[in-house]
Design a binder for these strands. Structure first.
Lengths: 205, 205
DNA sequence: TGTACATCAGTGAACGCGCGTTCACTGATGTAC
DNA sequence: TGTACATCAGTGAACGCGCGTTCACTGATGTAC
């Protein structure tokens, strides 16, 4: 990111970065505006040139997270592949990949108690991300005869729930909980079973 | 709970209760030792007669939560029912029922960043609860021929993940997210699909 | 039943701390001439 | 190219606050006689 500002260069971006680092290292509670400012090499007061306050900074981190999240899932979905099934599974893999690669973002998005309606931009970004998943689910469900087709929204909610559950329970270095299986394997298997249950994968495959 | 103490009666229990109320109302961050003491009608310093400190109080709330959780799931599982399938589904329903009925406990257990190994009692309680779910999954999987049988641990991890995901994403009055379906319905349907995928429910049922 | 005593749950004051936020300021940068 | 000026990003000090924790204490309770 090129310097463009007056003194710091791009303090706004640097603040978001330190916030993400803090969240990642210390959990959602571990983030403080003052500490984020300190990490960016700046006085706490300087933050107020770029953000309305503590919450706005978290919200911006979450917003960026949803944008990246949506991009990654979109990329996975649009990657040329043999089938809608393969495309869908690729999207699911990218869910977990995102959570592991951008843990700070993930926490800001889902564990910081930020309202997704706090700003229009945040709401739009989160809807875009969830929309990708829902689209993938919708397209895949077209492989089923109409009478066996689940509502796309329910379908994607199930996938989302299982993915989120795996991330929260098994993908974190959760103190005291050790995962019985690698999270990728666990999620892949779980979604496989679920898709079989819908009739989207033959039972004996 | 009968009075049994000297001055307050049973301050220890009262403190856990106020902590749970606070967590429920204000989220995991909203809990402070001082406020919990105040709600129990007592000076913050009094807390130290009963707990090592702030974290110990949360840990005790979580421990009690796991005990209740385990009891409820056990009860659901041991309730006489037509089949292992019915018993299993009953356990799943009790998962969500617990989360809705004891939201403070649920948060203390899963969102407070308490290590489950912080004390032997907490570890035991959490293992007991998860053990019930794993047993139910194990018993149900016996309905399958051995070569199609999933490892009980993976089976129960999937159910746990989906249940937890539904709770976190759709069962909370999450600000900004509105659930597309009632969480009970969503979870019941999701688990139904999953069980079909394992071959535990006929596909056309 | 009455009294003296021991116990120990809860008090109240104090602590040092870091927090989010405010404000008048300063001084590096970009711009106009 | 050089100078004067305007801008505004970041400073530094200050604020009031509630936090978790400590400590010597006090006074209600239970107990021994």
């Amino acid at each position: 990111m090129a310097k463009r500002g007056y003194h710091h260069g791009n303090l706004r971006a640097a603040l978001v970065d330190s916030a993400l680092g803090l969240i990642e290292e210390k959990g959602p509670t571990g983030f403080t505006l003052s500490e984020a400012a300190k990490r960016a090499g700046v006085t706490p007061a300087a933050v107020y040139r770029h953000f309305g306050g503590r919450e706005d900074l978290i919200a911006e981190a979450a917003r960026q997270g949803f944008e990246i999240f949506a991009d990654l899932m979109e990329e996975a979905y649009n990657k040329p592949s043999k089938s809608t099934l393969a495309a869908f599974e690729s999207v699911c893999r990218s869910y977990l990949a995102f959570a592991k690669r951008f843990p700070g973002h993930y926490v800001a998005m889902f564990e910081s108690n930020i309202s997704l309606n706090r700003s229009a931009e945040l709401a739009a970004a989160s809807q875009r991300a969830l929309g990708v998943l829902e689209n993938a689910a919708h397209d895949l469900s077209q492989n089923l005869p109409p009478e066996k087709r689940p509502p796309a929204m329910m379908f994607s909610a199930h996938i989302w729930a299982m993915s989120h559950g795996v991330v929260e329970l098994f993908a974190r270095g959760n103190p005291g909980t050790k995962s019985p299986y690698p999270p990728e394997e666990l999620l892949e298997a779980g979604i496989g079973v679920y898709l079989r249950g819908l009739g989207l994968i033959p039972l004996d495959e």
